[in-house]
Design a binder for these strands. Structure first.
Lengths: 133, 133
DNA sequence: GTAAGACTACTCGGATAACCTCTGTCCGAGTAAGTATGG
DNA sequence: CCATACTTACTCGGACAGAGGTTATCCGAGTAGTCTTAC
């Protein structure tokens, strides 16, 4: 039970992009990758996931790169995490003891407590209080 | 990001033991394993973890098996999960951008919301409302 | 000066390799209860 | 009868095999600016 390193990268790049969003110029993978000590190839793979979910927009060609879409301030932590990790529940009881495993109920309910917090906080929230890095 | 199958087994086993706790006789791995379609060898491996954490007591030799200790009603979901999965945080930011990554703070706080729920509910709580299987 | 073409700096996406953790198996050792045996 | 040894039914724990998913790399393809060159 660990959050994947991928979501770690995703969250950090989103933060970086958010801080660069004022310039309106797309940021290259190179720059993003360097800052986190990841290969460009791998980071771009993560970013395409985010692009597909509409949480990042990409511009190809020279002077291209990644930037945040107009509505970026409403993007929550949960959105980002689910874009990378998938939306599946953290716990499923594979046994067949009738519908509604009491254990699963508790687990899912606990999980939702966490998701609620993640849904409520956005990348934009971070910027209000802190500066980068 | 998934709860391991091991914790699933552990939780179900604990529930089973709790329901059998009235008899005061230890339950063999065989019986526990059959019910969950796991091999004895693997389940016993999980159980020894729980024994080491003092959440299950074992009696070896003939007529031996596993049972719950006297204070079992206070054992929470979180106790069980951490006994299997470890107590490490679900998220760590490996980057060195000064102490206190803002992202990590959010993630840890969300995680604690979940843990709070898991700490508050016990196996005993389940039994109050439901019968086995 | 300008239009066509080559060049360069990017992202995109599939295929694949390396790796790590979870899952599961095998087997030998220890332990305690029940059972047989010999005096 | 009673003590000793043997058998049986368990847990304990280490070593190791297998699977699946995450992490990461490589490389070819597409795309859009930019620069060069020829007229």
């Amino acid at each position: 039970m660990k959050f994947s390193r991928g979501t770690n990268y995703a969250l950090h790049t989103m933060l970086h992009l958010a801080l660069s969003s004022s310039t309106n110029k797309p940021v290259g993978v190179q720059q993003l990758a360097e800052q986190q000590n990841v290969s460009q190839a791998y980071l771009s793979k993560i970013l395409t996931k985010l692009v597909k979910e509409g949480m990042v927009s990409s511009v190809s060609g020279a002077k291209g790169g990644y930037s945040l879409p107009y509505n970026w301030e409403s993007i929550s932590f949960l959105d980002i995490i689910q874009a990378i990790d998938g939306k599946a529940s953290l716990f499923d009881c594979h046994f067949e003891h009738g519908p509604g495993c009491p254990i699963e109920k508790v687990m899912v309910s606990a999980e939702e407590k966490m998701e609620e917090k993640l849904r409520k906080t956005t990348i934009a929230d971070l910027i209000k209080n802190k500066t980068m890095n």
